[in-house]
Design a protein around this nucleic acid. Structure first.
Lengths: 260, 260
DNA sequence: GTTCATTTGTACGTATGTATA
DNA sequence: GTATACATACGTACAAATGAA
């Protein structure tokens, strides 16, 4: 990696990163800092150590520190100001937990629904899928597709595609008996923590095939929700794609302003 | 700027950048390349010169070239692949992604746009409207309707309907000269604070009338976003209804879990 | 209000790793 | 396998903004 002291650095990182997987040095540094921010070592609003201090701590160059900080900035975890330093910025809301109150999936995880699996298999991620759901091409992921239905009547509520990182693919066997979201299963089984979920919401027209399955008119509008479940190390554990007929779903969320 | 040959570089850039304003060197380089890309000097799909070639052409360091290219990548103009080079990619994808991690981000998204008012008047809220946007029937609210357009080109981005509580209706006179969101105006003028914003997102088909205005196909999909701006006292100051063509907009947000 | 140390931003040079063609 | 081109990483220096003395 580096030019003269790569080995020393690698071993330093081995301890510093609490056993994180390897990769570019700057990502190892970023992961370490990310963990520490998420775990409250650097609480929101506090100053991160200066670049010089981080450089000394990790025994890397300032270039590496800056690349790591750039990553954290892109992720919205910190903000840097010339002359002032780098501070940990408040997340989306300090008061709410993402799956409980801040997002109201009206109907989505209602208790009286069931998930009917249509197919479940490992697939290679090609470039097209990678672009569509934002995971690296070339890897193998577990794809689970199916329909969520109301328990009482058999009205289909939405089409769902789960993509699960192969490291956690063994949750697949639990799915037939599982009713709620999948990510708590992954957390329990593998001891990882989902630290953030990105939602991308867009409108689309339902494809003819899907229209039949969902029992809606052809070319009707639907809401497409892509959720990426990110772990504390920044890796993506799971991606979920939901397609909701417009007539049966609205997505509601509340953002609360954080005190400046 | 640089360390030993800053002046020479600045003058080089003076000619190279076809008279662009100054600023950091890497931005000057980025601007120049950006101009050349949009003007077809480097058509879509073609290779950009290598970093070494750009370094030589602009007489800057590879660091500067890479910072410039990074900027172009962030803008979605080019894509770089190790070993392969940097290619011009098909346009900054037409669909804008709105990425909000907090209410404060609502301030930023409308910066490069302008709002073209089509109508502005006080209306009584009937039952139908009350149900649609969630405000009490019977009251009088200020309704402002119009289109939001990109500053640079005249592509309509979305159709907007503002409904403003009559207590704050006098902001109406400021709207023609206002560029960004309205709620900061209300906060400034009346000394109230918007403490939370509820979003309700749903899919819809654009009406024929709207399709023409937005310059999209009839019966195409659109994202409807209803925002209610709630004050600290719980009252609703403003409701905004946006209709975004599906092809031009995605709504993204990240929920970060807070440590329990 | 000015000076001054601190801290990030910009910019240079160089070397090596690694994916691509 | 080899050459190419971007990715990563080191070192250094100065600029510019910040905040405190």
């Amino acid at each position: 990696m580096g030019q003269q002291s790569g080995v020393a650095k690698a071993s330093d990182e081995g301890t510093e990163t609490t056993g994180q997987a390897a990769g570019p040095l700057y990502l190892q540094v970023a992961r370490t800092l990310r963990d520490e921010i998420v775990n409250g070592i650097y609480p929101i609003g506090t100053q991160l150590p200066t670049e010089e201090e981080l450089r000394a701590r990790f025994s890397v160059s300032r270039f590496t520190v800056r690349e790591a900080l750039r990553r954290l900035r892109e992720d919205g975890l910190v903000a840097s100001r010339q002359g002032a330093g780098t501070v940990v910025v408040p997340g989306p809301s300090e008061t709410e937990v993402f799956h409980a109150t801040s997002i109201n999936d009206l109907l989505a995880w209602a208790n009286d629904t069931r998930f009917e699996i249509e197919s479940i298999k490992m697939i290679p991620v090609d470039n097209k899928l990678a672009a569509r759901i934002g995971i690296p091409a070339g890897e193998e992921w577990l794809m689970v597709r199916g329909m969520r239905l109301r328990d009482d009547n058999d009205v289909p509520m939405c089409w769902i595609e789960y993509y699960i990182n192969r490291n956690f693919a063994s949750v697949g066997r639990l799915l037939p008996r599982n009713k709620g979201p999948i990510f708590p299963l992954i957390e329990d089984l593998f001891g990882v923590t989902i630290s953030e979920v990105e939602h991308v919401v867009s409108a689309t027209l339902v494809s003819p095939a899907l229209a039949a399955k969902l029992d809606v008119e052809k070319k009707s509008a639907a809401l497409e929700i892509l959720r990426s479940y990110r772990m504390t190390d920044g890796g993506i554990a799971q991606v979920t794609l939901n397609i909701h007929p417009a007539s049966r779903y609205k997505h509601s969320m509340t953002m609360r302003r954080v005190k400046a």
